[in-house]
Amino acid sequence: MELVKLNIDGKEVEVPAGTTVLQAADEAGVHIPRLCYDPELSLAGACRLCMVEIEGWRGMAASCITEVSPGMLVKTDTPDLAEVRKTILELLVANNPELASNAKGNNVLAKYCEQYGVKDSPFKGETNYYEIDDSNPFIVRDFSLCILCGKCVRACTEMTGQDNLGFLNRGYDRKATTAGDVDYINSDCVFCGQCVAVCPTGALSEKSLTDFARDELKTVRTTCPFCGTGCNFDLAVKDDKIVGVLSNPESPVNGRSLCVKGRFGWDFVHNEKRLKTPLIKKHGQFVTASWDEALDLIAERFKEIKDQYGSESFAALSSARCTNEENYLVQKFTRAVMDTNNVDHCART
């Protein structure tokens, strides 16, 4: 593999040939602002926020689509660049100045606006108005927050392969939408939510998370409880309640990709029908009991049955949904306490 040396903001970096300047900067720990770039998606060069200065080059270069070359001298943070980025941001929020301040949901754009001192747009003109699409239980779409970066289109095509999203119209009427420009619920959407995960403005957001700014949520990385793929994601928690799932590029199996169950099926956890206390059946009716009452009864009856009918009269069904530790304990209990190998789980069903 051919390596290329370059200098970014005074830091010497060595990266494989073909790497972009933006990726090289990430390698070097230098953050270049970006909105349309995503490591899991093809390169678009659409938002222009990642402009850098390269010595000897005329004008500025969009670092996300510029490949490194030997000896490049790159500057990512100069007064001229700040000025240009500020103007780009002002243009991006022209249709809806609310974008500059709305920190709800996953609005990365608002963070950059804060950084570059953009509160409103001096570019006043006709603005588009679109109805908000909240036709489905999972995803809210608000075109007034869309900057046409096209990440959702690329995510739908390149990550999921569902090809449900695309660009419609040209110029002022351009929009990133479903085939036939219908609501999500009436489209071919499979609600994997990859479009939501990559959206940098909150134009697409998780319905359950729209009321929260990201930094007020605690996140806990874990493994999905549904199928055997073993996707990782972060549970978003607020006041000891799960409020959503956020995916992340570091997950070894799935990266940012999830399916409708993993991303949106978590609310079974807080279903009101969850059992909260042990129940003992008395005269055909379940009555609530304390843990001690329930487990004393279990121990008493298991002992009686084992003594009366022998160990082989007991059987345990463990669970392919439970953790390894729980499964280990169930088989140990069956073998070491109940003295039988009658333990199985639904691997065969």
């Binding site: 493994t223 999905c224 392919a320 949904r321 499964n327 639904c346």
Partner: peptide, 14 residues
């Protein structure tokens, strides 16, 4: 299932 491999690996089998 998410942990059918694990349930087998843990010996939840007869």
């Amino acid at each position: 299932q998410n942990n059918v491999q694990g349930a087998c690996d843990m010996g939840a089998l007869p």
